[in-house]
């Protein structure tokens, strides 16, 4: 378990898209300095959970609190300013801004992360800093999306599909970066399907099925029940 009290606390979260309800009461917590995963097959509500936490989707019921602050139903920019740094599914970098502009436009400017620190973390971004975001490869775009979120000096990094669709070499680089962030004390909530890599960096895991958390536990506990859970995970 993590250290002190939970940083992010989600309880009884319900959410819908149009008429169809997707989340039926999600409870999860992330502590200071923890790396926590959210596992589950496609369509089980992982991205919906992230969007509801971020305020990109208004929840029907339940609450989201972050560092003691009530975020339920608040607009997304308040969640971001409270310290939630989103690396969204599909990366969603700004294609009509240069790499440097992508990093600078929404930077917080008051914390530890600077342009040169991000460039040190991802040297390729330094090389490509004057290129348009839209001209980058998928892996570079993911690096940029992570760098962009870090520039907001997040207290908790939210990664929705950290390595999906990327080449093996790039994946390795990204996991390496996430591990170094963890060592530096960065709290992370990560969604991915690569269980092997996740087990190396994560402290705890949640399994989401049909809009509910159906299992939670440590890496060791996950290993013990692996066969039963594989049905849920679809790995």
């Amino acid at each position: 378990m993590g250290t002190a009290g939970p940083m992010l606390e989600v309880s009884g979260l319900q959410a819908s898209y149009g008429a169809g309800q997707v989340l039926f009461g999600v409870d999860l917590r992330v502590g200071e300095g923890e790396v926590v995963t959210l596992l589950g097959r496609n369509g089980m509500g992982k991205t919906t959970t992230v969007n509801a936490i971020m305020g990109l989707l208004a929840p029907k019921a339940g609450r989201v609190a972050f560092c003691g602050r009530e975020l339920t139903g608040r607009p997304a920019h308040e969640a971001a300013r409270a310290g939630l740094g989103l690396v969204p599914e599909g990366r969603q970098i700004f294609p009509n801004l240069t790499v440097r502009e992508n990093l600078v436009a929404t930077a917080d400017g008051r914390g530890a992360w600077t342009l040169s620190r991000v460039f040190d973390l991802f040297p390729r971004l330094r090389e490509r800093q004057d290129q348009m975001g839209g001209s980058l490869s998928g892996g570079e775009q993911q690096m940029l999306a992570i760098g962009r979120a870090l520039m907001t000096n997040p207290r908790l990094l939210l990664l929705d599909e950290a390595t999906e669709g990327l080449a093996p070499l790039i994946r390795k680089e990204i996991w390496q970066v996430l591990l170094s962030l963890k060592r530096a004390g960065q709290s992370i909530l990560v969604i991915d399907k690569n269980l092997k890599a996740l087990k190396r960096i994560a402290d705890r895991h949640y399994v989401l099925e049909k809009g509910r958390i159906v299992w939670q536990g440590s890496g060791a506990e996950l290993e013990a029940e692996r066969e039963r859970l594989e049905r849920h995970l679809g790995v």
Partner: peptide
């Protein structure tokens, strides 16, 4: 200007990065 251009391509993402849209 950066925020204006970013907003033109993806206002939702811009908001999720802390800009009061």
């Amino acid at each position: 200007g950066m925020l204006v251009r970013a907003g033109a391509s993806n206002p939702r993402m811009l908001q999720a990065l802390g800009t009061d849209i």
